[in-house]
Design a protein around this nucleic acid. Structure first.
Lengths: 216, 216, 216, 216
DNA sequence: GATGAATGAGGCTTCATTCAT
DNA sequence: CATGAATGAAGCCTCATTCAT
């Protein structure tokens, strides 16, 4: 008559292969929303549709789960971006635009962007994971941006640049947009319209603020 | 009679009013380093040099302390910047440079930058505080940037811009630098040299990537 | 079709009836080594070479398994000893020596000695099992020792004795040796050489500490 | 009106110095009764009259508590026994009797005897603690017994003996009595009358089983 | 029969909070 | 005012037990 009655629904369905991804996905959500410490494993399990104990069949403990969340998601996406850069034939400004838009489509606009916020928030508590993340994600993506810039300079399309710092400057508006989405963006505060924002960003970075001819 | 007896030796002379400030400062440090949930009040008290119980003489609970940390560290700094903008006479690109460098000196390079990181990390858990922060800080500082850009456009020094989005783009490299300092910057990972970074940032934003004459 | 498909290769051929014995044996090992509470059924199953679920085909729960471990390993051995005593013809001191050495060979030196340790450790948590064990084992073996002593006294070979207590005194060195084997003996600590120990024990108990003629 | 009403009974009384001993005493009780794994810290705390959390003010975790229980209790008692042996003047058989009776009074007849049972049960799970116990307790007490036997042999009061094994044989009836008290003795099973048992033990060990003149 | 994924009660441990001194 | 011993709710984690396959 009520929720009590038995529908003979098996307590679980055998999905050993799918489970880890479901758990990682749920864990990413909750870690991003609440932070590592405030995320309860019981909630992670519930969001994945399993019980507390099941989580431990796939991850030894909370920290391992956290590490897996960080490790398992971003690496494959970076590989695709690398291909784009290696094979591109046109103007470097166009390559740059494609790179940014592709990044946004593959990461910024998906829940993967949450990993950035998560890692930024928790780097102080997990130095080794931060080291891994820096090595595998940040350094690699920085390398790609640097490659684009070098390419532009070599081909006479970009001005000479302080490459070492320019890449971080250039990546910043993307980072900010991702972080905003998972912080103030949650609070019904002035949402940022991604397409307009990106267009503005690309335009600004390409041409600069000044009216041509450039002031010295 | 024995080693037990109290010699009543005060460890420090201290004005009563200084207490809350030391507590707020210690709390800021720990909230920034570890996040709200992972920061232990015992550690906050210890860092402030008082006992756990003393904390409760000044703050009702952890959440109140958190709110006070945010609230008490914000207001004063933005006024000076407003004065700069209102009274500046030179080229808008120079104003922009001064604004950025001043902001870095007054906020980015101080522990106030930690509040940015803290608020970014915890906005999801404290929406009202995030609203307050957005109102008092983000909106106001965005307004200043917009004012600088408007001024530049009005005076024919800057290109026409999508002001609504440009300010966030422009502020991003600063944000990134502040956040980096309190995340990966803690982990002995490739520190970012602020002056070089800022110079690169200002140059890039002023002139853009492209060689003049600007590609269409 | 893929690597998934079952080749139905039985790992071992095994008679159905052998299962419980292997499970009981594995359970005995682990209960003795770790105690009832700390012994994990998963480890028991693993040591017996079956899965966790299989255990429940043969035993309703952990407690039943424990009881079976005790029950199934006890009964047969004492009968032989009884025969020895009933039919022995020589000096009671020799009978005593034979009894002790036989007991060590049949019980002390086998894994049955582990049951003694187990029962000693868990008597407080399983009073009924302890009662059963006392009834079936302790009382019976005490009876045999008493019978040997009575025989010695009757035949004028032993001094008059407080039979009620002497049997426990006399059995103690055997108990100690068994318990040692399963406690400190596991820790690579000074192992006790059983034959020498037993010889010493028999000699000491037979002749006493004192130089003859006995001091008053 | 009911149990709800406030009697203004302070939730706790400041007894920082007494607490550790009270907790160790309660922990000894429960570890002995139930074994390490089955003893709940909440029960330990309750028996000591404090709450769960209080335990952690004095011991870092369950294992530390266990180690403290083993370490803190027996060592002082052994010192007294050593004094007896060093200063005794009479016949070695009398010294032996005094040693045994003193041991029983100081250890066997007190809850300290539980430590023996506890250590025997848990040696397999705590090899380092077992090592400590063997070093500090067993070796030392064995040394004392050996000293008594040597003294007896030197003075022509005891027969020549296999000292290496005799001490363990001799100590066994005491051990057994202690263990019995904390195992079967709990189950309303045939209690052992300690004084009679000890008298029988001393007599038997002193004179041996045989009628004088000693059979070969 | 046999399996092992799934469950969830229960125990260890942490830490925000209280309050007698 | 300040202290710090004490509390207990809450979260992590284990493992005996179940049950669809």
């Amino acid at each position: 008559m009520s929720t009590q009655e038995k529908v003979h629904k098996p307590r679980w369905e055998r999905r050993k292969d799918a489970r880890p991804q479901e758990l990682l996905s749920a864990a990413l959500d909750l870690f991003v929303e609440r932070g590592y410490a405030a995320a309860r494993l019981e909630d992670v399990a519930a969001r994945a549709g399993v019980s507390k104990g099941t989580l431990y069949l796939y991850f030894n403990n909370k920290e391992e789960l956290f590490k897996a969340v960080i490790r398992e998601n971003l690496t494959p996406v970076l590989d695709e971006a690398q291909d784009l850069i290696d094979s591109y034939a046109g103007h470097s400004a166009d390559l740059f635009r494609e790179f940014i838009l592709g990044w946004w489509a593959k990461i910024g606009d998906t829940k993967l962007s949450g990993i950035t916020k998560l890692m930024m928030s928790e780097a102080g508590n997990f130095p080794e994971v931060a080291g891994f993340y820096h090595e595998e994600i940040i350094s690699r993506s920085n390398g790609m941006v640097v490659r684009i810039l070098e390419r532009g300079v070599e081909r006479g399309e970009f001005r000479p640049l302080d490459l070492k710092h320019a890449n971080m400057v250039i990546v910043s508006p993307m980072l900010t947009l991702m972080l905003w989405k998972h912080s103030f963006g949650l609070c019904h505060i002035e949402p940022i319209a991604s397409p307009d924002y990106l267009r503005c960003f690309i335009d600004l970075l390409t041409h600069g603020l000044l009216c041509a001819p450039a002031r010295n």
